[in-house]
Structure formats: structure tokens, C-alpha cells
């Protein structure tokens, strides 16, 4: 935890040093125009406008403030995460906010999730839905990342015949891989298609076995047999039909990372900082701020599922 906080701070300090030198050179020309703004940005880099509204801050002072002096939202969210983890579990309200205006459809989040949870072929927790609007040349594209909505009123948990899936104290919908019988009823019940089944596929299946001089499937597939850390446990996929093979799997907001004070994998790799995460019960948190905005919506709200994933339009 301490390391993860330290690393970006160090990097930022270095960058700020560079930016400061650059800013000083620019300031010579800018001084006459907006000395106050420049001075404020340099004097108080740890509480920038970005905290209140990063978008507005970026729009308001594009030339004057040193962009590198602004705090990365990841740093703020890490700090808020630490604060939330100090609270009792049932008092946290994990929420994800996805700013669709910032999403460029790069799929970094999808890939980070696959890597973090060592997802096999056919299992996906966070695909990015793409929509093309209009026809060429008047065309635009819209991207909607779709993690599990962690509904407050989840239809998927009710249908499970063996108590294998439920909302935990943090409000995250979890699956007990050792309890799940693999009937896939919950998949049919999720209105978001957020659950997928682990059929036991491997990326390297069907590729040649190794011969003494050459590396083959037996060695090359080590990476996909390694255990992931889902739910804070170790789940190797050794090639047999042991769990998580034969189970329904889903996004869990990277609970195992949260427990270590780290943000979900998809949040950390979002190049546009479009995915925000935090404790909505903390009134000072970034996510609490964002979900109070009028341009917020949730998917299929009319179904009454009360999702915990919000989209900014």
C-alpha cells in the first residue's frame, strides 16, 4: 500500500520539476497577462481546481496552469481508497463512474482485467460496447465499457438455487466458486450480460507440444495455468475441470486489489481517466461528486436493478 502511494508521488515530483522549469520559461511571456492564476497553480499544486472539477479546470486554464501540476485523479482516488478502507466494510459504498465523453474505446480496461484475473478464452468481465452513430461521412462512435453493475437489487443472485452468489458486505456481487454448480441460471437472469461461463478453454489448446529442443504448449501455457487472486484466494486453472472451470464468473470490482489498497485494474489502466472508482458514502470523494451531477445515468434503470455503475454523458 505504501509502495503504491509512493511510486506515483515520486514520478510526479520529477515531472513537476521538469514542468516547473518549462512553466518558468513560459511565465516570462505569460506574467503580464495572468500572474495570479499562474502563481496560484504553482503555489498550491496539491489542491488544484481539478479536485473540484477536473473538466472545468482543464477548460478554464489551459494555457496558464501547468497541466503536470494538476493531481492525477488516480492519486486522489488512491487516497480516498485508503480513507474508505479505514471504515467498517458495511459503511463503504463502492461505486464506479465511467465518463463516456472521455472513453476513446481503446479497450485497455478490458485487457487489464483479462490480465489481472487471468481470464481464459470466452470469459470477459468488462467488454467495451461500441456503437456507430450516423453514416459516413457524418459518423461518430460511442463506447460503453460494461463491467458488472453490482446492482443493489440484483436479479442474478435471487435465482441461484444453491446460495453460490450474493452481495457481500461491501455491496459487491460475488460468486463462491466452490459452491457454484454451474447451472448458468444467473447468466440468463442478468439484464446486462455481465456474467460469463468458464467452459475450460485455453488459449494454447490445439497448439503443438514441445519437443526437447523447442518450447511447446506444455511450457508456453504456463501463464494461463497460473492462479489468479480472485476473492483473495488462489484459483489456478491446471487443465482439469476444477473450479473456476465449470463456474459462472463475473467482475468483482477487483476486491482482491481493493483489499490491498489498490484501485481496480481497469481504473488504473484507463488512458483517458474515464473510469473512476471510490466510496460514494464519502461525501468528499470524487465518485460522490460525479454521481451528483445531472448528466449521470445508469443502464436499464427502468428495471429497478439499481446499478452501482454510473455513466457520465
Amino acid at each position: 500500500m505504501a509502495e503504491s502511494e509512493k511510486a506515483p508521488t515520486t514520478r510526479r515530483d520529477v515531472l513537476r520539476g521538469l514542468g516547473g522549469a518549462l512553466g518558468a520559461a513560459l511565465a516570462v511571456g505569460a506574467l503580464g497577462r495572468r500572474p495570479a492564476a499562474e502563481g496560484e497553480a504553482l503555489a498550491a499544486p496539491s489542491r488544484p481546481l481539478a479536485d473540484a472539477h477536473p473538466q472545468a479546470a482543464a477548460n478554464a486554464a489551459p494555457l496558464t496552469s501547468d497541466p503536470l501540476a494538476q493531481e492525477d485523479v488516480l492519486v486522489r482516488m488512491e487516497r480516498e481508497l485508503t480513507r474508505a478502507l479505514a471504515k467498517p466494510r458495511e459503511q463503504r459504498r463502492w461505486v464506479m463512474v465511467i465518463d463516456l465523453r472521455k472513453c476513446v474505446g481503446c479497450n485497455s480496461c478490458t485487457v487489464a482485467c483479462v490480465a489481472e484475473n487471468k481470464l481464459p478464452p470466452g470469459v470477459v468481465y468488462r467488454p467495451v460496447l461500441e456503437e456507430e452513430i450516423g453514416t459516413y461521412p457524418n459518423v461518430t462512435r460511442k463506447f460503453v465499457p460494461r463491467p458488472c453493475m453490482q446492482c443493489d437489487n440484483p436479479p442474478c443472485t435471487l435465482v441461484c438455487p444453491v446460495h453460490a452468489t450474493w452481495k457481500n458486505e461491501d455491496g459487491v456481487v460475488v460468486v463462491d466458486y466452490d459452491q457454484c454448480i454451474g447451472c448458468r441460471y444467473c447468466i440468463t437472469a442478468c439484464p446486462y450480460g455481465a456474467r460469463t461461463f468458464d467452459f475450460g478453454h485455453f488459449y494454447t489448446s490445439g497448439t503443438p507440444q514441445g519437443v526437447p529442443s523447442l518450447l511447446g504448449q506444455d511450457a508456453a501455457d504456463d501463464y494461463e495455468r497460473l492462479a489468479n487472486a480472485e476473492y483473495g484466494e488462489s484459483w489456478p486453472r491446471s487443465g482439469g475441470d476444477e473450479s473456476p472451470v465449470g463456474n459462472v464468473r463475473k467482475c468483482h470490482f477487483c476486491l482482491h486489489r481493493l483489499a490491498e489498497g489498490m484501485l481496480p485494474a481497469c481504473v488504473t489502466t484507463c488512458i483517458g481517466r474515464a473510469t473512476l472508482f471510490g466510496d460514494a458514502n464519502d461525501p468528499d470523494s470524487l465518485v460522490a461528486e460525479m454521481i451528483a451531477k445531472p448528466n449521470v445515468m445508469r443502464l436499464k434503470e427502468e428495471m429497478g436493478t439499481a446499478p452501482r455503475v454510473y455513466y457520465l454523458l
Binding site: 478490458t110 470469459v123 467495451v128 460494461r146
Partner: peptide
């Protein structure tokens, strides 16, 4: 598909 575009969003067996 429960959400439009779900099928095209990610590829793999069973998707």
C-alpha cells in the same frame, strides 16, 4: 443480446 453491441464487443468461444 441484452445490450446492443454486446456480441461484437469481445470475441471468444461462447461469446
Amino acid at each position: 443480446p441484452e445490450l446492443p453491441g454486446l456480441e461484437a464487443a469481445f470475441h471468444g468461444p461462447g461469446l
